[in-house]
Design a protein around this nucleic acid. Structure first.
Length: 422
RNA sequence: GUGGGCGUAGCUCAGCUGGUUAGAGCUCUGGAUUGUGAUUCCAGAGGUCGUGGGUUCGAGUCCCAUCGUCCACCCCA
């Protein structure tokens, strides 16, 4: 029996890693452009952290966590999202006390679910968080970061959906009223809706079942429970997005699955990825830090699914910075092999960004050139007995830039430097 | 956890109502061209037909189980 990777946990092969490197490079650049600093965190945290942050009765905590006891009996979990760990670390190192803090984080997260298109058990997120800014300009900033990222990656076709959940107070009042209303009509609800009634009543509002929909029509609306400050906050977010020319749609049914959200919630959605169209999602979580034992401070941020982002880049065929070699050196004959070895190292010394492959493992010139071609290199350098004796190198274009020509060895660096703009 | 599709060469797949030795394309290796790739031609290598059981004179093909994978539901990035 061959040993395979764990279900839903995938390898990224060299042919695909260029896209990942591109995403990380562009993201790091964008986050820096907004003054966000990177946080690197452990993949494992105490299970208790996620129970308290994400919510005890959420699907993520109830049935999707990889939880285990370590040898010392500690209850630990592979992180199912990044925000909880970011907040934990922020509190632990005292960087959330009485100050603003802009941070980002990336890495693998884990959820035990059935894999499907755009959903995996180990997946990767980019996470952006702004702490200590209670005003709606932080909500706008965080959304703008995502928009900037799409712009720089060359992605389009998203719909930005936004909604407000108000304060925990109005949210709770609405929730109570909603549950009371739905309980009165429980018999008329479909099976799914009855199950969600207590676990996630806001989700019932989203039902597609006609009978349930009819009941939902008369249900208490969150909008009616929002206080003036919440409405003003939401209006300011919308105004900020308008000012930036970021199109959005208010979706009153937009509810996030994690308990900690307050006020603004948003999703960047695409219809190009099948059933899992949410690429980036987030919102404000003003109570979370305090709830985890930190100071009373606000937070707003988002999580972005890298796999979904990369799938979308494939669909939209966006250009990715190539990491294919630029030059491949073919060599045969004892003297030439040594000269080529020295030349390769000298070229790398002189041009730190040059991507150069030196043929290894021998082979006929024919087979070496075949490898050169398939490596994606633009030029092959050929050094055989003749060139070794003459102190020259043959420069050969593999991409239709004219015939091969001999070049004195001392001039090779200059020749490549100008041709490849090194 | 529920439902459906699919498991045949490294990859993408064909293989009829069960019937000799399981095929193609791509890739790879070698040759045509003593040292010139990508095009062309020739040759070669590469298979426990996912696994286990059953039916049958005979199973890649039918049945059962199991594992894997993909898609969808639930939920979510």
């Amino acid at each position: 029996m061959k040993i395979q990777s764990v279900r839903g946990m995938n390898d990224v092969l060299p042919a695909d890693s260029a896209a990942w490197q591109h995403v990380h490079a562009v993201a790091a650049q964008v986050f820096a452009a907004y003054g966000y600093g990177e946080l690197r965190l452990p993949v494992v945290e105490r299970t208790e952290l996620f129970k308290r942050a994400v919510g005890e009765v959420t699907d993520v905590v109830e049935k999707e966590m990889y939880s285990f006891e370590d040898r010392g009996g500690e209850a630990l979990s592979l992180r199912p999202e990044l925000t909880a760990g970011v907040v934990r670390a922020g509190i632990e190192h005292g960087i959330l006390f009485n100050q603003q803090q802009r941070v980002w984080c990336t890495g693998p997260v884990f959820r035990y679910e059935r894999p499907q298109a755009g959903r995996y058990r180990q997946f990767h997120q980019l996470d952006v968080e702004a702490f200590g800014i209670a005003t709606p300009d932080a909500d706008v900033e965080v959304i703008a970061i995502a928009a900037q990222l799409w712009k720089r990656l060359g992605l389009s076709g998203f719909e930005l959906q936004i909604n407000t959940l108000g304060t925990p107070g109005c949210r709770a009042k609405h929730r109570a009223a909603l549950i009371a209303y739905l309980e009165q009509h429980e018999a008329g609800l479909d099976e799914d809706a009855q199950r969600r009634l207590h676990s996630n009543p806001l989700r019932v509002l989203d039902s597609k079942v006609p009978a349930t929909q009819a009941i939902v029509e008369g249900a208490p609306k969150l909008l009616d429970y929002l206080d003036e400050a919440s409405i003003a906050h939401f209006d300011a977010v919308k105004a900020g997005l308008d000012a930036l020319g970021i199109a959005f749609r208010v979706n009153p049914r937009l509810v996030r699955g994690l308990d900690y959200y307050t006020h603004t919630v948003f999703e960047w959605v695409t219809d190009q990825l099948g059933a899992q169209g949410t690429v980036c999602a987030g919102g404000r979580y003003d109570g979370l830090v305090e709830q985890l034992g930190g100071p009373k401070t606000t937070g707003v941020g988002f999580g972005l699914g890298i796999e979904r982002l990369i799938l979308l880049m494939g669909v939209q065929q966006v250009a990715v910075t190539s990491n294919a070699p630029q030059v491949y050196i073919c060599r045969m004959g004892a003297a030439a092999e040594v000269q080529a070895l020295q030349l390769a190292e000298a070229l790398r010394d002189q041009f730190p960004t040059l991507r150069l492959v030196l043929n290894a493992g021998g082979g006929s010139l024919k087979s070496q050139l075949k490898r050169a071609d398939q490596s994606g290199a633009r030029y092959a350098l050929v050094i055989g007995d003749d060139e070794a004796a003459a102190g020259s190198v043959q420069v050969k274009s593999l991409r239709g830039e004219g015939d091969a020509f001999p070049c004195p060895r001392s001039d090779v660096a200059a020749e490549l430097g100008s041709r490849l703009a090194l």
